[in-house]
Amino acid sequence: MINRSLKLPISLKVSISIFIVFWLIIAAFPFIWTLWGSFKIEADFFSKADWMNALFAPRTIAEKGGAFTGDGYYGAWVQENFWQAVINTTLVCFFVVGTSLTIGTLGGYALSRSSYKYTFWLLITALIFRAMPPITLVAGYLLPFYEWNLWGHLATTVIVLVAINQPFTLWMLHSFFQKIPKELDESAKVDGCTQFQAFRHVIIPVMWPGVITTGLFSFLLAYNDFAITSMLLSQNNQTMVPKIASFMGTTQTEGNVMFAVAAVVSTTAPLFIMVMFFQRQIVSGLTAGAVKG
């Protein structure tokens, strides 16, 4: 690769660099801009007079005495109880990832170790389920959930998210388990282990890279979901994303769009950190399905 890039003519090199810079600006600038703007007041971040106001913040200085203000964050976290949504999201994500990995590894392992034809049909069914937009299922949930008073609780949402997550988890873990040689657990079974013992003592110790990658995607699904969480959670139990959407309804009239800006930054920050630490796993997860298929 390196000697090939050395051979690039200078004009091509320059245009590639320009393109990359252009793409990086498109990809990252909106986030940096929003982060910067979240510390201003609305009159500066949304300035009719001059966009430079968002940079130098004359109104923020005039009103708050400094170029940066934490008012948006205070408003969102304290006044509008965004902290509650943060706790809810943490709970939902933790239980979704935990449950979906537990039942997903069992299922994915079984699929990879059985040679009967029905495993194929199960995988095809999972693929069909994976294609269903989650919002189309919501109408089916609401009636029984109302009848049995299950609507609005975090636990219900966790179970629904786990189920919606299963098809993807199964496919991913299935392909990871297929890379673990069958001889490993076969030999354990020859030594007298049951299938479950072989799984417990031989497979679990070596499966972690695949499980961590799959876990990251389960986490992302739970963290980013809007369709299910906005429909199935009551006001008090809302997670961060539907909470932000509800800000849009209430705060725009009060001129407090900055609450929403601050909430968006607060929600995005953990994702940034996650990508920073798990970039390699995310990339390998995205490509796992593709390269295999």
């Binding site: 986030f31 980013n224 979901d225 809007f226 994303v241 995005t268 994702l271 990508v275 920073m276």
Partner: peptide, 15 residues
């Protein structure tokens, strides 16, 4: 570059 490129995809579509 890959780090910054992942950002638009990783955040929730709503955000």
């Amino acid at each position: 570059t890959i780090f910054f490129s992942l950002l638009p995809m990783i955040v929730s579509p709503l955000i």
